[in-house]
Nucleic acid binder design. Structure first.
Lengths: 240, 240
DNA sequence: CGTGGCGTTGAGAAGGATCAACTTACGTGG
DNA sequence: CCACGTAAGTTGATCCTTCTCAACGCCACG
């Protein structure tokens, strides 16, 4: 039998975490087995159906969550009901604004999702202990900021056709977190209405532009929710 | 004579920092006098004129900078020249994306600005030493993310009239970093062209909406670059 | 007294929104 | 298994907001 070594490998990776999407790429990658084991005492896995609300704008946050599978839709609404989707989160992102008392967005499961719920105090105490963890969380925030700014260009300066192409390109390159290569055939995680709210367009305009891309042979619409992109470079050209 | 105490107050706040806008509110607020003194060995103050480029998109970053006075414009351009302003930075923000090898945006002085230039290695070594500093930087990134998402709603879902009102409201509430109260009379840090690029509108549309707000008595246009808002609540109502 | 940069105003064109009809997919219950 | 109902998506016609193009005003500067 191997002697017990006095280092971080005293502890083994918890069984639940061994096959977890967030174990290495997500924030848990910054934790050693000991910390991970401690954290798992207060976490729990849940499955949410598409459409379920996970967090409401201006409501207190009681927990964070690692996205393990599926897509989360982040949105904001104006008083009169106009809605804007301000971001999508894919595995292995952390859901929830760190250190904020209340949410600044509404979070909703866009597809069926698996989450690893982490109580707010559990994560926050770990954050103050581990600079490596806080660093990971900061790097995610910075990446989200870059993505938000990229999308501002799409919202402010692109035509409807370019917007829809940009959306399809985004999904093709983000839908599978395990795969480094973009997908050529995938399910859309959003309805036409949500796509419109993401792009600042109406459902009708989204639909027309999708039909146009199909007519031009840039995408195939297998099913309303499933598209296939034979040549990603050609789609990229349509993004403006 | 007081005995020297073995704590952080062994060191005095550097003279240059004593009257600095970033000393308490900005990232330097996370540093003790010792760290601050060490940092000032490699920093230098510079003044930049409106229009000077501080950082180019996709170019290597050699330094960060604290904004001490004035407004920085962050923008992105598409290949064909279409431009989008993706954010404004006011004192005492930190300019420059932490830990990134190259910039993801173009940064330009919108007004005359004073900066405290910090070499990249100097800040980054401090960041790895001080969890408190990294925490501040993360909090700024999270605030910027919130602001970017708020602006996405403006870009995606508001009318031209609401966009221009939102811009004026943003400036009124951000232009003076020392003042808790919004300003009722202020200089616009952006030209009409830049305002258009911030709002995803043309110069002409910005101009027409400004004239309309003036005709409706919501704002007074003292000078092209100086406006006065007698009733901020009325302006707020126009923001949608 | 030009000249050029910046801003405003007007007329016409165009892109996307709105309103409305129709299609497709899918679940439910007879 | 099919009739029905409903939700989601598509397509067409028309309207309206914003863009485009053009002329003009203001002001600083040589």
């Amino acid at each position: 039998m191997q002697t017990v070594r006095n280092d971080t490998y005293n502890f083994e990776t918890p069984v639940l975490c061994q096959s977890c999407a967030a174990r290495h790429q997500g924030i848990c990658g910054a934790l050693n087995p000991e910390q991970l084991l401690e954290l798992t005492k207060s976490t729990r896995r849940v499955r949410k159906q598409a459409g379920e609300e996970l967090m409401a704008d201006a409501m207190p946050i009681s927990s964070y969550a690692n996205v393990l599978r599926g897509v989360i839709k982040l949105s904001k609404v104006l008083e009169d009901g106009r809605q804007q989707v301000v971001g999508l989160q894919f595995a292995p992102d952390l859901l929830g604004r760190p250190f904020a008392a209340e949410s600044r967005v509404t979070a909703e499961a866009a597809s069926e999702v698996d989450l690893c719920i982490i109580p707010k105090p559990a994560l926050e105490s770990l954050l103050t202990q581990s600079a490596a963890l806080e660093h990971r969380v900061m790097m995610q925030a910075l990446r989200e900021l870059d993505e938000a700014r990229d999308w501002m260009v799409t919202l402010g300066r692109k035509s409807a056709a370019e917007k829809v192409a940009s959306f399809l390109y985004l999904i093709a390159t983000h839908i599978d977190p395990t795969d480094r290569e973009p997908e050529t055939s995938f399910d859309l995680p959003l309805s036409r209405a949500d796509i419109g709210d993401f792009l600042g367009l109406t459902i009708e305009t989204v639909s027309r532009q999708m039909s146009k891309l199909k007519a031009d042979g840039v995408v195939e619409i297998v099913n309303y929710r499933h598209v296939s992109v034979p040549d990603l470079a050609r789609l990229r050209l349509r993004c403006g």
